[in-house]
Design a binder for these strands. Structure first.
Lengths: 329, 329
DNA sequence: TCCAGAAACTTGAACGATCCAATCCTGCCT
DNA sequence: AGGCAGGATTGGATCGTTCAAGTTTCTGGA
């Protein structure tokens, strides 16, 4: 392989000092146009690339962002993370950052990993996907002034740290309104137990949309842990007790269960899921779709804002989901 | 925040020189037990972590492995990559490496990215998922002696470079044998156009298993691009022309299409898919399951083998898939 | 023409780890 | 007691970049 090209090689080739080359790269405006051109030509001719390790040593910044990759849980929601990570990588790249993966089995280990990543790699920032009430991870990071963004609101204190989220309530409300417009009145909701921020939010969207249309939502909802079997069980219960003509679900897993429960029921019950997962696309399930690429991009925006300048806490971003229409509603 | 802990801090604390600390970290065997213990205690007490940038500058090695994250293609196969990446991150971590993500829209850009990653981050190795005949990427990497492993065989030259793969033929053969044991004779195959290594391999497994059982596979297979709609179309064709009692598919997408085509057909046609994606689990589709975590682990093994020592090209690894039994077969 | 001040560029030092070569012990043998 | 071999330890140089301070060149006004 060719000789290693360093800043000194470029300097020699352009007949300037190392520092001038460095200035061309980092503060071009203080270099005379003619000199700058000469240096840039040399950089291109030699194929020079600034060595990140050396730069990092001096500046203390790695231009690396960490993101966690989960073991695919129930499998269905896996692809959400997948798409988000792709968007993150793409946008971060454009902003001059790279994405480093890590995993952890529980919060304690995850925090230990933070320490490791910060200590050995001097990571610039973290992106956390999903947070819960009183999340120890965000607390740890905030205590140490480590820049981070969460994809998912901090439900207990909306101004605790920068975040990007998708308006779940708006999504379920939109789904509900669509069903109302189609003439449905008895629109049920299948969701998660009270207490999870995301779940409560999605249920609220459905409830408020019904109320706005003058329909009383009382008794029309059921709660359970996520899962296809659970969804099927609760949907059967709903069919017997309140006989809804349509149902909005907090996830595609629940919606899939609901679909199985209503098989053969006539007239057909409309079903709308949440997350627009591949499964939904595969079975033709109408589902609320999150703009994941956009969410990832905004996460990077917030981070670069914090990293490259402004000390003020950036404004949180709340994105609007859309409805992926298929044939179940 | 606390004072930065460097190797000098540890040395002072343990009353030894920097070099001794370095030796404890890199060649523990040459340090006297008692001294080593004292240094290790100091490391723990101070929470010291070797700065990777400084280490990298001297050694030229980053302990970073690059992996590509694709835009989720048809969505269904996304989770395969997801699970593989998770496994990769986990195993690499255990081996002291970290996984860096990159994306690219085509081969040229991907190769440009290699140059960038190698130049600026001095990446130690690449993991490529899926290769095609005469892949320009592997060629580029091999030309420059950049260590890399592919998950997927180099179909044109099996000893071209280290690889890990799952025996697709064994998977379809196993699926076929299961159907044979269940009494099926007219077992069709839904696959991809001739010319893709993976597709041809999977078809061969089905064909050979049929022949071994004395069944003539002629006319029992159909080829198409991947996709649910395509699968449905071809399955309808098969039903009309050869009326199979079971079908083995090259992917879950095709299998899903097949499932839709056979809805209402009596007696029910058995279907087996490939990849054991979340969709398969969701709809109860029996599917060939690839040991993705294991595959990722072996990729890391091969890489660390190349990176940490032996100059000889390591032996490729061919893993056996298993059958995830559900209610479609 | 001369000089102050700004702009442009150059030089030396530092970041934190590892490698190399030289020195210091320590115990052992004669 | 002296010498020696061997392992353990030390100091200095180095990786490629940026920062801080120093030097030269340019510009414009008196």
């Amino acid at each position: 392989m060719a000789e290693k090209v360093t800043i000194a090689t470029v300097a020699r080739h352009a007949r300037v000092s190392r520092q001038t080359v460095s200035n061309v790269l980092n503060s071009p405006h203080i270099v005379r146009q003619e000199t700058r051109q000469r240096v840039e030509d040399a950089i291109n001719a030699l194929g020079y690339r600034a060595n990140q390790a050396a730069r990092q040593m001096r500046t203390g910044r790695s231009r690396l962002i960490a993101a966690r990759i989960d073991p695919t849980r129930d499998g269905i929601n896996g692809s959400v993370l997948d798409r988000f990570l792709h968007g993150l990588t793409e946008t971060a790249d454009a902003a001059g950052y790279r994405v480093l993966l890590y995993t952890a089995t529980d919060d304690d280990r995850e925090i230990a990993t933070y320490g490791d990543l910060l200590g050995t790699y001097e990571l610039d920032a973290f992106v956390l996907v999903g947070t819960k009430y009183g999340d120890p991870r965000t607390e740890w990071l905030a205590d140490r002034d480590v820049p981070f963004v969460t994809f998912g609101r901090p439900w207990d204190a909306l101004d605790a740290h920068p975040w990007v989220d998708v308006d779940g309530a708006a999504g379920t409300a939109q789904a509900t309104r669509r069903l109302l417009e189609a003439g449905h009145r008895r629109i049920a909701f299948l969701g998660w137990p009270v207490g999870s921020g995301v779940g409560d939010d999605r249920r609220a969207g459905w409830r408020d949309a019904l109320r706005a249309a003058g329909v009383d939502p009382t008794g029309l909802h059921r709660e359970t842990e996520d899962g296809i079997a659970e969804g099927e069980r609760l949907m059967r219960d709903l069919l017997v007790t309140v006989a809804p003509s349509a149902v909005v679900c907090a996830s595609d897993s629940l919606a899939l269960g609901a679909l199985q429960a209503i098989r053969g029921v006539d007239p057909p019950v409309s079903v709308i899921g949440f997350d627009d997962t591949p499964v939904a696309a595969a079975v033709g399930l109408t589902s609320v779709s999150q703009p994941l690429g956009e969410a990832a991009a905004r996460c990077v925006d917030l981070l670069t804002g914090v990293l490259d300048g402004a000390h003020e806490t950036p404004t949180p971003v709340l994105l609007q989901p859309s409805l992926a229409l298929r044939h179940t509603a």
